[in-house]
Amino acid sequence: MKTWEEMEKVQPLASRIITNSIQKDRISHAYLIQGARGTGKREIAQLLAKGLFCEQKTGIEPCNACNMCKRIDSRNHPDVHWIEPEGQSIKIEQVRRLQKEFTYSGLESDQKVYIIQSAELLTLNAANRILKFLEEPNKKTTAIMLTENSQAIIATIRSRCQVIDLQPLSPTLFYEILVESGVSEGNAVFMRALTNDLNEATRLLSDDWFAEARKLVVQLVEMFAINPDDVYLFIHRHWLAHFKDREQHEQGLDLLLLAFRDVLYFHIGNEAAIVCFQAGDERLERLAMHFSQEQLAIILQQLLQAKRSIKQNVHPTLVMEQLTLQIQR
């Protein structure tokens, strides 16, 4: 998505809002772009920045070939500043550095752009510090904040930005894109439930770790039904050995969630929506015999709770132990 024209296909409303303001030369001093993963937040930010700096624009489209555009892509443009979370959050030190930068004149031009990725991860102090120059922007400064959840951003920042909501990618569109790029239909169905980022999907599919993870998830779900006494052992011997950092654990829980959802779908006859198993898989039948609908609903809730716990830095081993005990009950 390197032009507004391409962007318009994916995000018609958002790109119309922005292109209109570019045409009328009324670019806001601060944007808050909200959208799920893979919806094109970063691309929009880049397009906006290029629109401001590109020297050979045709209409509103940046050329993507000039020195300016190339350097914005490679993040080497001295007047476009990217702020990304260092570790778990965006720290006040990063904001202080940015603020210092803004007391200087531009290096090449008289305008500046700063782009804050995952703005929901700003610590409260950092966010309050940012407020200061959101409130009194220097001349010709454009702030672009990207977030997956604008509600997690403090209201005082939100109210000072033009909020642009990106619509989630339509699953069917994503499915078509996946199939087009050579992913098998079964895998495409599965990946579209898990993500809506093409790059991530292809990366996961070619990843051995992920293939093994899928196998483990199915094994674990079956084990709950067939051999519940050994589940605890399985968790310690295989699961925790395979899923190591927080991100991997979250992914594992996502996969479990999908698997249990499939069983529930099988119960209510919504077989078209099944993603982890093949429709008509006899394993599915066996699982459905073992878990009732009520049980499944409770399990799904517990999985969501486990995901929250992981996000809140609870030790993964404890989370998984608690989860298995609760599911066995």
Binding site: S105, D110, N138
Partner: peptide, 21 residues
């Protein structure tokens, strides 16, 4: 210049950005 000041000796150019405000 607009954004920078240049100090130039025979073989050395020293440029500094200016403070805004």
């Amino acid at each position: 210049t607009n954004n920078q000041v240049l100090f130039q000796t025979k073989h050395l150019n020293f440029l500094s950005r200016l403070l805004d405000g």
